[in-house]
Computed example of a mutant assay.
Amino acid sequence: MIELFQMGGMLFMSILTIQLAAVVFFATKCFLSKDQSVGQIKNVGLLAVITGILGQLIGMFSAFEAIQQMGAVSPAMLAGGLKVSMITTMYGVIIYIVAILLAIIIKNRK
Rank of each mutant, 00 (worst) to 15 (best):
K83P: 00
F26I: 08
V44P: 07
K29H: 14
I50N: 06
L78F: 13
Q19N: 11
I18S: 08
A22N: 00
S62H: 14
I15T: 12
I67C: 09
G92M: 08
I105R: 13
I106S: 04
S74N: 11
I94Q: 06
I106Q: 04
A66M: 10
D35I: 06
N108C: 07
A27R: 05
M90F: 15
M60H: 02
A48K: 04
Q36K: 15
I18R: 04
L4A: 14
F5E: 04
T28G: 14
F31K: 07
F5L: 05
Q68H: 10
M77P: 06
I105D: 09
Q68M: 12
G81P: 03
I58T: 05
M13K: 09
A63E: 08
M1I: 15
S14I: 12
A22H: 01
S85L: 01
L11S: 01
T51Q: 07
L47W: 00
K83T: 04
F5A: 02
L101M: 13
C30Y: 01
V44T: 11
G59F: 00
P75L: 06
G8S: 08
M13P: 13
A27Y: 05
I87N: 07
M60W: 04
A63S: 10
A27K: 09
A99D: 11
E3V: 13
K42M: 10
V23N: 03
G39Y: 06
L4T: 07
I53D: 02
V44R: 00
S62L: 11
N108M: 06
L20P: 05
M77D: 12
I2L: 14
K29I: 02
M70K: 15
K107M: 00
G81S: 10
V84K: 11
L47R: 02
V73R: 04
S62I: 13
G71W: 12
Y96L: 07
S74Y: 08
Q36Y: 11
F5C: 08
I87V: 14
